[in-house]
């Protein structure tokens, strides 16, 4: 089979990536998740009174964390977005890849959201809403707050003339 360029390798010059801090932020989030998981497993194995169970749980959770640790970087590597005259393109996905397109004149409104962890890194999530169903909201997570706001501004400015 001739090796064709895959979806993720085809992108124009003006592509942008997420902020690198997004990797750190998601790793911390994963860490917290794993600690909670470990705590739950500890309680269960304490009640069951089995060190073996705890050991297995610990190993599984460590494995999970290392996978997630690796995944965070991968996920960052495979996420791109860019803006054209027609609309916003978002490419993502490590194994199952997708390239979503939201035409400018189909954007209903946009949200910029920020969690406590993201606030520490001055990161934000931009959510673009359309009138669609499955893609009613299209998020880009892990942008710098300023970037998110300016992107939102860009989307709005040129979209205004085409308001529904």
């Amino acid at each position: 089979m001739s090796q064709q360029p895959s979806l993720i390798e085809q992108r124009p010059e003006n592509v942008k990536r997420l902020h690198p801090d997004a990797i750190k932020a998601s790793r911390i989030a994963h860490l917290i998740f794993c600690i909670i998981l470990l705590a739950a497993a500890s309680v269960v194995s304490f009640i069951a009174g089995s060190w073996l169970l705890w050991g297995i749980a610990l190993a599984a959770i460590l494995l999970l964390f290392s996978l997630l640790f690796f995944w965070a970087k991968k996920s960052y590597d495979y996420t791109w977005y860019w803006l054209t005259d027609e609309g916003l393109y978002i490419q993502r996905g490590v194994l199952w890849r997708r390239k979503a397109l939201v035409p400018r004149n189909r954007i209903q409104h946009t949200d910029v959201a920020q969690g406590p962890l993201q606030r520490r890194f001055e990161l934000a999530k931009l959510i673009v809403y359309t009138a669609g169903t499955r893609d009613a909201s299209v998020p880009i997570d892990g942008l710098l707050m300023e970037t998110a706001n300016s992107l939102r501004q860009e989307l709005r400015q040129e979209g205004d003339s085409d308001a529904v």
């Binding site: 979503a100 359309t130 169903t133």
Partner: peptide, 26 residues
């Protein structure tokens, strides 16, 4: 409303993809 091109793990080996179109009220 939106147009998505999806490429699964298996699609990639064949250079194939899936195209999805989203509409309101689906």
């Amino acid at each position: 409303q939106t147009v998505q091109v999806k490429e699964s793990l298996f699609d990639r080996r064949y250079g194939m993809a899936k195209l999805e179109v989203d509409t309101a009220g689906a």
